[in-house]
Nucleic acid binder design. Structure first.
Lengths: 210, 210
DNA sequence: ACGATACGATACAGTGTCGTTTCGTAAATA
DNA sequence: TATTTACGAAACGACACTGTATCGTATCGT
């Protein structure tokens, strides 16, 4: 912060280079993994020289860490007053996010690289997974206070029921060419009313069946 | 097959070496990934010489492919006459399987390595994911024929609802130390009866209704 | 015993990568 | 202009890895 005023002599650093390098690193990590990515490739993709990279980061690991730290999926909480529409918007934004090939592959790469390294794992969880959690649990807690949810439903389990199917869908969809898109509305209806067959119409929210 | 009878002259190959090498390769892939694993490490872990490996496989890729092909999670279909107990047994076996650290990390490694390589992806899907699918869809179709399931529930969506939450749970559990174990029974009850709050006792009371 | 094959240990060539260094040039300040 | 720093291009040393080759030994059939 104090450095911005004190103009050091000599040619200033190219400000665009930093983000160009980090973006290139992220794309290459997504494509080839941390091991498969070379610093030369990062330099070539970013359009800079390798010298420029090593002037900014001491080694490859530091570059990777900063690139991965910069990668934060934009997830937020919704508060429309209705849990069903909150969840619908949340899942829709999650679906849009997971439709990005970069985010898809990057997430898998990070998950597989991060396991077994406590520090990386802690940082990744705190930055990328935890916000997702709190956004979801906030919505659920608000709905529970409004009486929109079964009182005996465990919050963690409800979160897993909401998030799991879509994540699972996107995971297996990567291997299938003719997979049907995830129907968020139908999913919420089904989870809301239950999988059991109807005997009587207990609630008017049933999705127009029989 | 015909080679087993025709005994070639000379010292026969060590039959144990094959599985020792493939096992070593699998463990090393799980720990360090395909790129991180070296053939020398495989040889050292398997207790054989590198010559022995290259006499059996032409290159590293062939070894990796055969090792990954050999890795087939043992999942089967259940037919107890009740969908709820079928699913309960299915999920319990899936949970036991995903509790193995080797299978956990190997699955993530494979997922991240396999994406973008059509042949690998096809083989992995056919060998490891597809059996899971058919086992689950068989159980669901039988239940649907018995009228145990809502008629308007899409099979693919039901499969995702059943499998997704547990897979998601195991995924995030890798980053948490104090996570509650997945309660399969409570999960099935919740999904079966729905998340909506009870208004009148149209059916029994809670999970124990028919 | 003898030939044939497998094995372990080791060395090797070829390649790729990391991180450093050199050098000529560009862009800033004093 | 003189100085100071950043930059690109290129080369470099050190190291790891792949895949091959060599050599002495072990184990099988005949």
């Amino acid at each position: 912060m104090t450095e911005t005023d004190v103009r050091r002599p000599g040619r200033p650093r190219n400000a665009q280079a930093d983000s160009a390098i980090l973006d290139a690193a992220l794309h290459l990590i997504a494509q080839e993994g941390v091991h498969g990515m070379s610093v030369d490739e990062v330099a070539a993709r970013a359009g800079v020289s390798k010298t420029t990279i090593y002037r900014r980061w001491p080694n490859k690991d530091a570059l990777v860490i900063e690139a991965l730290t910069r990668f934060k999926p934009p997830l937020r909480s919704f508060d429309t007053g209705s849990l069903r529409s909150d969840i619908e918007r949340f899942l829709t934004s999650l679906q849009v996010m997971l439709n990005e090939p970069l985010i898809q592959m990057l997430t898998l790469r990070i998950l597989s690289e991060v396991v077994g390294r406590p520090e990386w794992s802690r940082v990744y969880f705190a930055d990328s997974i935890s916000p997702n959690f709190t956004a979801l649990s906030d919505m659920i807690d608000r709905a529970r206070a409004r009486g929109e949810l079964r009182a005996d439903a465990d919050t963690q389990l409800v979160m897993e029921i909401f998030s799991g199917p879509l994540v699972y869908h996107m995971l297996v969809a990567m291997f299938l060419t003719d997979v049907k898109p995830f129907d968020t509305k139908a999913f919420i209806d089904l989870v809301w009313d239950g999988l059991k067959p109807f005997r009587t119409d207990s609630s008017g929210a049933s999705p127009e069946n029989t």
